[in-house]
Design a protein around this nucleic acid. Structure first.
Lengths: 125, 125
DNA sequence: TGCATAGTTAACCTTTTGGTTAACTATTTC
DNA sequence: GAAATAGTTAACCAAAAGGTTAACTATGCA
């Protein structure tokens, strides 16, 4: 039986529950951007965006690199991975039965070390 | 580029952002339970649980079956699937490059129809 | 030096959240 | 019919969320 909700999951899921914050993550994708650039498409004051960024940062979803007067934000996928895995883990129970669980665990352990890519097309450039 | 945040995702992620609500989902797993039973392990009044259940229900994460004076709640995995897919979709961009995307899409389309179980050991009992 | 740019912090406001207790509705059981 | 059981609704409360504007810090640039 799954128990003991990890404290970080609260922050991660909470951060994701706001459409502006999800939009910021979508907007960033893999690249880096400054606060003003991030704020631009959102119909909202700069301090409001600043708050959202802090929420995302404290949830570990963004990392900040300060260079001069500019703050560059970048997505950190780790907490999202955890969030996804919580969902996966639950799904195993919903989909029911324990052979499905075994199947799932096999797939997880096969997937989890990214050092063994299925296809060697290319790795993270 | 991913855009247009689905409105349901707000509710789903928000529902998941509370540890009590996640705990309820974990506790339920695949089975059905009444409100009092659900409330029992949580150090909280019944109305408080009732509210949490309503949040989960309105997010589509629980379905309610009323039988006499008892309300039976059961997990509905669909919105979680959407939430997971949002994360997946984002991850594709963080992990970067587009061959990863292709790989991902292949795996998704291969996984999505649950009507083709890999092992016929047993089905949902 | 002085001004523009990038961003945060402070103070404030309204709405929502998450909890409480008390009262209510509906069903079952004696 | 009365009492127990299952659960919701109502009214309330404190704290947090999400936004605002104004003031501030710090850097870049003429």
């Amino acid at each position: 039986m799954p128990r003991a909700p990890k404290p970080d999951l609260n922050d991660a899921f909470f951060a994701l529950s706001d459409p502006t914050r999800r939009s910021i993550l979508e907007q960033l994708g893999a690249r880096e951007a400054g606060v003003t650039e991030i704020a631009e498409p959102h119909d909202m004051s700069l301090p409001a965006i600043s708050k959202h960024l802090r929420v995302l940062e404290q949830a570990g979803l963004l990392t900040r690199r300060v260079e001069g007067r500019q703050h560059f934000l970048r997505v950190n996928p780790d907490p999202l991975q955890q969030a996804k895995q919580w969902i996966e883990r639950q799904r195993v129970f919903w989909e029911g039965s324990f052979d499905k669980l075994a199947e799932h665990l096999e797939r997880m352990t096969a997937e989890s070390p990214p050092s063994t890519p299925k296809s060697s097309k290319s790795r993270k450039p």
